[in-house]
Design a protein around this nucleic acid. Structure first.
Lengths: 209, 209
DNA sequence: CAAAATAGTACGAACGTTCGTATTTGTCAA
DNA sequence: TTGACAAATACGAACGTTCGTACTATTTTG
């Protein structure tokens, strides 16, 4: 009972630290100190540091789904939902869901080239995200909102790349305009694929603002 | 004399290790072992680990400029040079200039959120790159190859994002199609900005292949 | 030979981990 | 409701290792 509560609070802190210092920089000693508990106390909940890292990745994934992805999935199917997902991501970086920016982007670069369970877990979490993105594009296409020649995998790749770019520019180069640039690029790209429904309802350019 | 040679060979190895294991994972002990020299021997060349990290970043920057950027700058000014830079980057990831993918992408994510000299050096190196990219776009625009409304900073941001995305997808998700996708996206984006010179020389669609 | 470069050795701190023990907690009989 | 007790949870101390770094001695080089 109590154990589960403690475990969760450990993981929350672990995710925050890892998003700032990396999954290796997430140190048992530091984590224990910040939680005001002993190192050995931590080992009652996690058998090893690797266990802790894996649990932290899963916890981060859940946090991301709960706070970013799921709310966006509430939008109407098709183009609106796709845009909602994109906007949710752009907000997510600035909103401080993870204190160090995008947890997964950082973890990806930290563990690519280091085979093992941790790397696989990160890759799997990122896969889920890219697949969700791809699915949103595909649905928008099937809904008739996007050009039927649209390649969902290609568009998902491009969107994801813009997310990475935005995260990078706003974090390291702390360029405040990065999010805006990414938003602009995304809107423009998706607009270029959008079906205008000119048959049923002619496209009328709305007055600016 | 000999010292300088040794220093260079230390740095080459250091850059390779750091590109795989990160700048923190680049450890004095490991580096010494791989070079078959003593830890204290290393300290004759670098006053501290931070010194070593800074020198490794500079060394990586030089390697990147020499092997990737400078060759591409040989292309004719304007659109061709811009495309040459983009292609050089796309090749660079797959070509194994750094064994762990893009040195700077990894370093960026490792050190964002950790203020200090190392972070600043990484940011500065990346700045130079983004500025070079932006300059190439601006030149292409001034040369009349791109739509005069083109915003060089925006395009540089988008291109750089695609580079990040390609590196990520091909490294962590080892998706072999990532480079192709990025290439396609870049070509399409730049094509959309291209001036067709329809006044002086009408645009004639060449036969496919 | 003087100077530059390298090796050897040692240090304190921090790393992940283990162990035996103390404390807290939930359960159930009284 | 309480008391007792086993299980769950947390602790302090210590382990062996590796980290970055300092100091001194020795070899290599110009």
């Amino acid at each position: 009972m109590k154990g589960e509560r403690t475990r969760q609070s450990i993981l929350e802190r672990a995710v925050d630290i890892a998003s700032l210092e990396g999954l290796e920089g997430l140190t048992i000693g530091r984590l224990a100190k910040e939680l005001q508990m002993s190192k050995s106390g931590l080992f009652a909940h996690f058998g090893s540091k690797e266990d802790l890292q894996l649990a932290a990745i899963e916890s981060a994934r859940v946090r991301f789904v709960d706070e970013v992805l799921r709310p966006a999935l509430g939008a109407p199917r098709g183009y609106p939902r796709l845009m909602a997902i994109c906007r949710a991501w752009l907000n997510y970086v600035g909103r401080g869901v993870f204190p160090g920016g995008c947890f997964f982007a950082a973890a990806s670069f930290e563990f690519d080239g280091r085979p093992g369970a941790v790397r696989d877990a990160i890759a799997s979490a990122m896969d889920q995200w890219v697949i969700a993105l791809e699915k949103a594009v595909r649905l928008a296409k099937e809904e008739g909102h996007l050009d039927p020649r649209t390649d969902p995998a290609q568009i998902a790749f491009e969107l994801n790349a813009l997310f990475f770019g935005a995260n990078f520019a706003s974090q390291l180069r702390n360029d405040p305009s990065a999010i805006r640039r990414a938003e602009k690029a995304i809107e423009q790209r998706l607009e270029s694929l959008r079906v205008k429904r000119s048959r049923t309802r002619p496209h009328v350019r709305r007055k600016t603002a």
